[in-house]
C-alpha cells in the first residue's frame, strides 16, 4: 500500500503541501541555515532529526513565519509564498505545536482548546462555553485520547495529555501542515506511545501533512514515511524510512562527532 503510493508519487508530479528551496537564515555572523531544501508531500509524515544547534528550531520558526529567511523561497501547495508573520502562516494552514505547548495551566481543557478562536454567543459576545465543551469533547473522543474531564485545569494533566490537547487544538483549527516540535521530549513510554498513536491516526486520516521533529530515531521509524537529517544548517540526508535504518542514521551522526573531534 505504502509502496504503491510511493510509486504513484514517483511517476506523477507528487502533490506537495510544502516546499522550501535554498533557505538561508543568518543571525549576524552566525549562519543558522545555509541553504535548506525540504519538501513535504500531502498526507505525509516527515521525520526531521538533527543535533542540538543543527538549526532545527530556526528552520521551524522560518517555516512558521516567525523568522524571515535571508535567501530562498517557500511554496505552500505549489504556490510561492513569503511569510511575514505567524498569523499569515496560520492563515495558510501551517500550525506548530511548540515544546512549551502554548497551553495555559490555569484554564480548563476546553478554554485552551479554543484559545484565541473562542466561540461566542449573539448578540452579546459572551463565551459560548456550552458549545465549546461539546466540540472539545467530540474532538477528544475523535482523537481517541483519554482526558479525565474537559473542565479540568490543564495544569493538572499529564505531559502526554497536554501534548494531545495541543495537537488537537492545531488539527481542529484547520491545520493542513502540522509541525510537531519534539512532542515526545521528557515523556514516559506510555505517554509517548499515546502521542505516536495519535500521529499514526492523523496519518491514516490523511487530512494533514506532518513534520515531526524528533531526537529519538526509533520514534521516527515508527510513524514517519520519510526521514530528513539536518546537519550544519542544511539537509544532508533524505530517504524513505523503508530504505533507511536506525543504524545508518546513528552511523552518520557518530561520523559527525568523530569529524568534530579530529578537526578541533
Amino acid at each position: 500500500m505504502a509502496q504503491a503510493r510511493q510509486e504513484d508519487n514517483a511517476t506523477d508530479a507528487p502533490p506537495e503541501a510544502l516546499r522550501a528551496e535554498g533557505i538561508v537564515k543568518r543571525f549576524g555572523a552566525l549562519t543558522a541555515l545555509s541553504g535548506v531544501d525540504l519538501h513535504l508531500r500531502k498526507g505525509e509524515v516527515l521525520g526531521l532529526i538533527g543535533d542540538n544547534g543543527a538549526g532545527k528550531s530556526t528552520l521551524i520558526k522560518t517555516i512558521t513565519g516567525f523568522h524571515r529567511p535571508d535567501e530562498g523561497q517557500m511554496y505552500v501547495d505549489g504556490e510561492p509564498v513569503s511569510l511575514r508573520s505567524v498569523a499569515q502562516a496560520r492563515a495558510l494552514g501551517i500550525e506548530t505545536v511548540f515544546q512549551d505547548l502554548a497551553l495555559i495551566s490555569e484554564l480548563s481543557v476546553y478554554h485552551n482548546m479554543f484559545l484565541n478562536s473562542e466561540l461566542t454567543l449573539k448578540p452579546f459576545p459572551l463565551l459560548d462555553n456550552r458549545k465549546m465543551k461539546e466540540r472539545t469533547k467530540q474532538y477528544i473522543d475523535d482523537m481517541g485520547v483519554n482526558i479525565p474531564s474537559i473542565d479540568t485545569q490543564v495544569g493538572r494533566l499529564s505531559g502526554g495529555q497536554r501534548q494531545a490537547i495541543a495537537v488537537a487544538r492545531s488539527v481542529y483549527s484547520n491545520a493542513k501542515i502540522l509541525l510537531l516540535d519534539e512532542p515526545l521530549a521528557a515523556m514516559g513510554a506510555k505517554e509517548g506511545a499515546m502521542i505516536l498513536d495519535l500521529v499514526q491516526k492523523l496519518k491514516n486520516e490523511g487530512q494533514v501533512s506532518i513534520i515531526l521533529i524528533a531526537h529519538n530515531y526509533s520514534h521516527v521509524f515508527e510513524v514517519c514515511d520519510r526521514v530528513n537529517l539536518l546537519q550544519h544548517g542544511r539537509i544532508s540526508y533524505d530517504k524513505p524510512t523503508s530504505e533507511s535504518s536506525v543504524e545508518e542514521l546513528t552511523e552518520l551522526v557518530v561520523a559527525e562527532y568523530r569529524k568534530a573531534r579530529t578537526t578541533s
Partner: peptide, 16 residues
Amino acid sequence: LHTFATGGNPVGASEA
C-alpha cells in the same frame, strides 16, 4: 479569558 491567558503563560498565550 485572554487576560487569564496573558498572566498565566505570557509566551504561550502569544504563541497561540
